[in-house]
Design a binder for these strands. Structure first.
Lengths: 114, 114
DNA sequence: GTTAGATATGTAGAAGAACGAGGTATAGCT
DNA sequence: AGCTATACCTCGTTCTTCTACATATCTAAC
């Protein structure tokens, strides 16, 4: 049973942008996809998901249209705006830079500073 | 000029625990060390640093004594408690799990779901 | 001698994110 | 009729982080 890992602040936005960047999807599917791909490491509660989507939409990074799902239900499909795609690239680079730095620090040993 | 990367929530605690785990240090030196090792990617403002240290001390993860610096000034030297060392290990594992998952997601491509 | 910068610590207030708990509604299965 | 999965949403709490401010000492330049 994998323990749930709370996402650090800001990371959720990046992951959402990434998934939406692969093709229009609705919110519920985004959460499912993140959970699948991460093998249950990333689990997005709805109380985090929907506020994040509205946030990104308000910032002009996502746009949405109501469409029908394959199963016949109405759902709000999100897609990246041009601004959103730029933001995705910036945040991806930023994440890699940061993750690299944290990795460096975690690999530090007593003699590592000099 | 490397752009400042705000640390995601929770990460600062991990990095502080890591540095303190290498040997007793005072707060100001922790920030310097993080900046050096990360090549300026991680920059810790004092308004984040000291509250974090007090938080960790209150949670029983760090303990502190006033001592003299090499340069002759009084400073508060922190060290890991047993609880703090356990926490460091747990958070390190948690970070690796999370960073791995985010990496997986960021490497996703259109066909990556099946 | 005094001004500036680095060292070293701290607080206050605001902004923002994440989460749990709650609510609505439809579709399909038994 | 009841249960589960799908699909959307909001409210209030909690926690972290950051900007700005405030203090004090030591060293070096001028």
């Amino acid at each position: 049973m994998p323990e749930k890992s709370d996402l650090p602040q800001g990371t959720l936005d990046l992951l959402i942008l990434k998934v939406v960047g692969l093709g229009a999807v609705h919110g519920y599917a985004i959460a499912q996809r993140l959970q699948q791909v991460s093998r249950d490491v990333v689990q997005v509660p709805q109380g985090s998901l929907y506020p994040a989507l509205h946030r990104l939409e308000n910032r002009g990074l996502l746009a949405a249209d109501w469409k029908e799902t394959e199963s016949g239900r109405e759902a709000k499909f999100y897609r990246l705006t041009r601004k959103g795609r730029a933001q995705l690239e910036a945040e991806t680079a930023s994440w890699r830079r940061l993750a690299g730095a944290v990795g460096l620090i975690l690999r530090m040993s007593e003699g590592g500073a000099e």
